[in-house]
């Protein structure tokens, strides 16, 4: 039993951190919001180069995965740097395709079947040349960034199909554009697979997406805390650094306490991948991560005051992302319900 990242895993996280620290992620978000997806796409490519997306793709399909611990390590850094794009969605889609592939017999070679779909897309996901969006109504009713994705999937009941993006909805998070993929809007879509295997694969994909999102939220929370601590040490009001006020200290201490007790839940859920406890543990992690990031955002805003409330300060990107990811991939209430259902078998 060694429940901490090993040296290689830590190094992987640190490498991503360094890569992203110099990559102008906030600028990529603002470019995306202004209509230019290219900086985000460039980021995506360097993340793929660092091996991020291969973590979700089985080795047989050109990936290095599934490696859930490495995946949450990466997603923590993606959240910490507010990387834009359908990140959890692409990972979840990889999980879905891999699962369908395994379910239908790998490499059966039929062009319109799940195996062919997996063969066509999984290697591209791994190498970063395919950005995939995915909707899993009702919990994930919108396809994130469907306008710039290379493939947009939706699972409707036990049918998997492609979807054409409708009109975008505006999120509080400028990095996110959400596209309805309601049944009615699906004329343009193509049916890809059908049956109970689709339903099972969608359930597995949901868990993987929620886990990635939880890890992303811990990174968002961590960054908010880091930036706020730094600000509290330099900003002076009433003749002293505001970080010397007990109200500020205690609030930030509480954020740290929450984050420190969220990380083990995320790691624990990653290790439960493939076990019957995975859904329960993912839900525990997502609920806790949503609340911890929410608390971090609230404290960041309150400690920064009006500066934190100002669009042009990059801090606002993380504050907004904490709110958006809270309800993405299942709300805290929904995940808590699921934990209790798993525990009571009800």
């Amino acid at each position: 039993m060694k429940f901490v990242l090993d040296a290689e895993q830590r190094l992987f996280g640190e490498t991503l951190n360094k890569l992203l620290a110099g990559a102008g992620t906030a600028g990529a978000v603002r470019a995306r919001a202004a209509g230019d997806p290219e900086p985000g796409r460039a980021l995506w490519r360097s993340l793929a180069g660092a091996g991020v997306f291969a973590l979700a793709v089985p080795e047989a399909a050109g990936g290095a995965g599934p490696l859930p611990v490495e995946l949450v390590t990466a997603f923590h850094e993606l959240g910490r740097h507010a990387v834009p794009g359908p990140l959890a969605e692409t990972v979840a889609a990889a999980g879905l395709l891999a699962r369908l592939d395994a379910g239908t017999g790998r490499g059966s070679g039929r062009g319109d079947d799940a195996g062919g779909l997996a063969a066509a897309w999984l290697p591209r996901i791994a190498e970063g040349t395919a950005v995939v969006s995915l909707a899993l109504p009702p919990a994930v009713p919108y396809a994130l960034d469907a306008d710039t994705a290379d493939l947009v999937l939706v699972v409707d009941g036990d049918e998997l199909r492609t979807a054409a993006p409708g009109a975008a909805l505006t999120s509080l998070d400028p990095a996110r554009r959400l596209f309805p993929v309601a049944a009615g809007a699906a004329e343009a879509g193509t049916a890809l697979a059908c049956g109970p295997a689709v339903r099972a694969a969608a359930a597995a994909a949901f868990d993987l997406g929620a886990l990635a999102c939880a890890a992303q939220l811990t990174g968002v929370g961590r960054r908010l805390l880091e930036v706020t601590v730094e600000y509290a040490m330099t900003r002076r009001q009433f003749g002293r650094p505001i970080g010397s006020f007990q109200a500020v200290k205690h609030r930030l201490a509480d954020v740290l306490v929450a984050l420190e007790h969220t990380r083990p839940l995320v790691h624990g859920a990653a290790l439960a991948y493939g076990s019957p406890d995975f859904p329960r543990d993912v839900s525990a992690a997502k609920a806790a991560a949503s609340d911890a990031a929410h608390a971090a955002a609230g404290s960041a805003l309150q400690v920064h005051g009006a500066i934190g409330y100002t669009d042009e300060y990059d801090l606002s990107l993380w504050i907004r992302k904490a709110r958006a990811l809270r309800s993405a991939w299942g709300s805290p209430a929904a995940h808590r319900s699921r934990v209790l259902s798993c525990l009571t078998g009800g």
Binding site: M1, K2, F3, V4, E260, H261, T262, R263, P264, L265, H267, G268, A284, A287, A288, R336, S337, V339, L340, L343
Partner: peptide, 19 residues
């Protein structure tokens, strides 16, 4: 649910600490 999740978090944090 929250109490159960937090107890689990504390348990896992314990494993982390001794690791």
């Amino acid at each position: 649910a929250d109490a159960w999740i937090r107890a689990r978090a504390y348990r896992l944090k314990g494993f982390e600490t001794i690791s």
